[in-house]
Amino acid sequence: MLRLTGLTKRYDRGDAALSGVDLLVPDGEVVALIGPSGAGKSTLIRCTNRLVEPTSGRVELDGEDITALSAAGLRTARRRMGMIFQEFALIERLTVMENVLSGRLGYVGFWASWWRRFPPADIQQAFHFLDRVGLAGFENKRADALSGGQRQRVGIARALMQSPSLLLVDEPTASLDPRTSRQIMRLILELCGERKLAAIINIHDVALARQFAHRIIGLRKGQLVFDGKPDALTPDALTAIYGAEDWSTLPDDDQDG
């Protein structure tokens, strides 16, 4: 369970990117985070695992206060938060297997990881996840030889390797075509269901958010302006999040049948 209390981030110059966000995500719930560019979606995700240091407020994961942790404690806590990125953020020059195994870096010592000597159980786990995301047999390919959708699958496998209880997902489909986007979203949802994972998915595609998420949160100028079920996302709610616009032309959810 993730609990954010009064989470605020102020960058050196400019307004607050986040101001006093309160949020509770129970285990197994997939939350889509929508909002205009610059609303603080990415900052919220990065404040949760402190890739960006929050200015004030608390982040608690399963009762542990993440914001109070020392550097070593933070590393241990980050293992429980798998992260998936917009541009995949794979290590381009390493093999698929090394990228997947890098999800275990928080669990193994430096020299073991330097010589790529991961425990046999980790390697079995990695082969299993590659199989699960549909990339069996790809382990020796280099990451830069894969297509966008395949890379995102490697990114998902890497996040799962951490044995997380929470997934932080930053625009997983922004670099993908519509069909691949749906496949990736479906995969993330299935995996969250199988493993009882909570997830915060930061996404700008409202139709995808509506179709796949259990719950939708709207962020505007760093403040929470909507929190509800997907079917509660009325034109009025969209206007509250994005500003006035004729929302009746929003594309339907079943484009690709």
Partner: peptide, 20 residues
């Protein structure tokens, strides 16, 4: 982005250098 992704796994500073 690549170093950020490695940092997010809970890797130590040395591991971020080695992998990222």
């Amino acid at each position: 982005a690549q170093t950020e992704a490695i940092a997010a796994t809970g890797a130590s500073r040395a591991q971020i250098l080695a992998y990222g």
